[in-house]
Design a protein around this nucleic acid. Structure first.
Lengths: 339, 339
DNA sequence: CTGAAAGCGCTAACAC
DNA sequence: GTGTTAGCGCTTTCAG
C-alpha cells in the first residue's frame, strides 16, 4: 500500500513530474488547462502530498513549536487557542510541548523542535532567559515570546499584556469606590509580571495621593489559592486591616476570600477583593470576582501573526518588535464601597 | 549558515557518511571506539540531525497528531498533559489541532496531519464517526480514541472512562445519604457519554429499588452552566421537588446551584447536587462540589501508550483494544442527607 | 509552457 | 566493521 507520489500522477496524466509539481502549487508558468486537469486527477486519485519531502527540499516545514510551562494552566489554554486558530488559518501546524519548568526538559523540548526543523518557536509565560534565546538564535530559529517572566533585551520579539494599565484600571475602580487602605497580594515567584503589577499598584496609589505602605504588601508562596490564603492571613494579623485587597491573580484572590471567610469576615462587605486574568472560574466563585480580563486570545493571535510575518520576510518594524496589548476590567461582586 | 550534515562530520572524522549515521543511532555493526569518537565529534560540532530527512527515508516521523474539539476545555487539558508527558518520554512530538466541531475543519486538520505524515492520531472527546475512522484507516493512519461520543464498532482502539461505574458510585453516595427523589440533569448534545451516565443513573436507582421517574430526567440545551440552570428550573417547576440532583457534569451542576439559589433554596440543605469530572473549579465554588474525578491524566497516558505500542508492532490483544478506566468519587459539601 | 536532472539529509541494502 | 550506492518524494534550476 505504497503512497501515491507525483510520479504516479505524472504517468497517468502523461506529463512530467515537474509539471505535476507546478500544477499542484499554482505555479505561474503552467497552462491553465493542464493545471486544471492535473489537479482534478490528483484529487480523484486521492493523492496527498508529502510535507516531509517538501520540507526537506524547501527547508521550510510550515510548523511552529509552541512551548508552555504547564499545559493544564487555565490561563494558557485561551492563549493557545489564539495561536492555534491563527496558525491553522495560515496552513501551519503546531508542535506543543510543556517544560514543567524543568531546565533539562526545556533543553530536550527545544532540541526536539530543532531536529524537526520547526520554522519558529513561540514561548508562553516562561522563565526563558537571554541565554536560551541566544541559543535559539544561534540555531537560526526565530522566536516570539508571550508574557515572558525574565526581563529581556529590547530587540526580542515579544507580546505582553499591559500590566501597568491593567493595575491602573483595577485601582481606579477600587479607589473610586472610596477605599484608602488598599493592600497588594503578590507572587514573587511569578517574576516580571508580578513586579509590573506591583509597580502599577504603587503608581496608581501615588497618583491618587495615597501613601504606599509596606505592611500592605504581602507575598504568597505561590500563585495558587494556597499562597493567596497564606498571604491574606498575614494581612489579617495586622492591627489596621485593609478594606480592599488587590491580588496578583484570580487563584490567589480565591484563596484570599477563603481566608477572609475563615476569619468570619465577609467579601465584599468587610473587605473588597480583586483578581486578575478572568479565568473561567472567576465568574462562578462566591462572590463572583471583580477582575481584569487579559486579552489572552489576542496575545496568542498576535504572537502567531508576528511570527508568520517574520517568516515571510516582511521586516518587522523596530517599534512593533514588542507589542503590548490591553484587556479590560470586569466588575463583578467581590468589590464594594467600604463601610 | 548552512546546517551541518553527516557529510560534514564524516569528512572531519575521515570516515564515510554511513559510518556516521550508524554511530549516531547506536547501530550494532560499528566499533565501540569509532562510535564514541564520532558521537563526541558530532556533539562538539553542534550537529543536530534532521528529523525531516530521516522521516523521508524511514517513513516514520515520530510525531503523533492529537485532535480535540476545544483546546480551552478545562476537562481536556489534563488529558493532553497525560498524552504529552508520555509522548515526550518516548521521544515523540505532538501536533495539536482543534476542530471546533466544524466538520470542514475536522477534514482540514486530518488532511494537514496526513500530509505531515504523522505516525498516528489520538482523538479526544469528539464526535468522530465510523466514516471518518474508515477514512483514516484507508490512509493507513492508526488512531486511538478517548471518550468518543459516537458508538463505534468494537474493533477500534479506544479508551473510556467507566461511566456506569462512576454513576453507580455517585448514586450509592446519594442514596446512602437517604435520598429517594433523585433527579438526573443531562446533556443530550454530549452523545454517548450522556447516554451512559443516564443509563448508570437508572440502573443504580433500580438496584436500590427506587422507581425511575421520567419527570426527574431533565435535559439541558448545553453542558455549560446555562444549560444546567435552565434544566434545573424545569425541575423546580415540579409539584414534588427532587431532594437530590445528579448532573451530567460540573459546569451544569454549577448552573443548577445558581438556579436553586435564585429560587431561594439552599444547597445542600434543601437539595443536594452532584457534578461530574472534578474540574479545577469544582473545589472552589460554593458549596464545593461533590463530584466524580475522571482519571483524565491516565486516559491520555493510556491512549498514548496504546498508540505507541501499536506503532511498535506489538500486536494489541483484542481484549485491550478497548480500555475502560475508573476514577473516584470526591465528596465535598454539595451533598447532605435530606431533611 | 514543459521536461530533464540534480539534490535536500538521511538510511539501509549490498559489497568488501 | 566500514564504504558505496541508491533512493525516500519533492522542488527547482536550466534547457528547450
Amino acid at each position: 500500500m505504497a503512497r501515491l507520489t507525483i510520479y504516479d500522477i505524472a504517468e497517468k496524466a502523461g506529463v512530467s513530474p515537474s509539471t505535476v509539481s507546478r500544477a499542484l502549487q499554482d505555479h505561474p508558468r503552467i497552462g491553465e488547462n493542464t493545471k486544471g486537469r492535473i489537479q482534478a486527477l490528483a484529487k480523484e486519485m486521492g493523492y496527498v502530498p508529502s510535507a516531509v519531502a517538501r520540507g526537506l527540499k524547501t527547508k521550510r516545514s510550515r510548523v511552529l513549536g509552541v512551548i508552555v510551562h504547564r499545559i493544564e494552566d487555565p490561563y494558557l489554554t485561551e492563549v493557545l487557542k489564539g495561536i492555534e486558530d491563527t496558525l491553522h488559518s495560515y496552513g501551519y501546524s503546531l508542535f506543543l510541548a510543556a517544560t514543567q519548568r524543568i531546565p533539562e526538559r526545556e533543553q530536550e523540548v527545544i532540541r526536539a523542535m530543532n531536529e524537526r526543523r520547526v520554522d519558529g518557536i513561540i514561548i508562553s509565560s516562561s522563565h526563558i532567559n537571554m541565554k536560551r534565546l541566544r541559543q535559539l538564535d544561534h540555531y537560526g530559529i526565530p522566536s516570539v515570546l508571550i508574557n515572558n517572566q525574565e526581563t529581556l533585551e529590547p530587540d526580542t520579539c515579544s507580546v505582553y499584556n499591559d500590566e501597568i494599565y491593567s493595575m491602573n484600571q483595577i485601582l481606579q475602580h477600587v479607589i473610586g469606590l472610596g477605599h484608602k487602605r488598599i493592600a497588594y497580594l503578590g507572587s514573587p515567584r511569578a517574576g516580571r509580571t508580578n513586579k509590573k503589577r506591583q509597580q502599577g499598584y504603587e503608581e496608581a496609589l501615588r497618583e491618587a495621593g495615597v501613601e504606599v505602605c509596606a505592611d500592605y504588601i504581602s507575598n504568597g508562596v505561590n500563585a495558587r489559592p494556597q499562597g493567596g490564603a497564606q498571604a491574606m492571613r498575614e494581612l489579617l494579623a495586622l492591627e489596621k486591616l485593609p478594606t480592599a485587597v488587590v491580588c496578583y491573580n484570580d487563584m490567589m484572590a480565591i484563596g484570599a476570600i477563603q481566608a477572609i471567610n475563615q476569619a468570619n469576615l465577609c467579601v465584599p462587605d468587610d473587605v473588597s477583593v480583586t483578581g486578575f486574568d478572568n479565568i473561567d472560574l472567576a465568574a462562578y466563585v462566591t462572590p463572583p470576582l471583580t477582575t481584569f480580563h487579559q486579552p489572552r486570545y489576542k496575545l496568542g493571535q498576535q504572537a502567531a501573526e508576528m511570527m508568520l510575518q517574520a517568516l515571510n520576510g516582511e521586516p518587522i518594524p523596530a517599534q512593533t518588535q514588542v507589542s503590548i496589548l490591553r484587556g479590560e476590567l470586569v466588575i463583578r461582586q467581590s468589590t464594594a464601597s467600604p463601610n
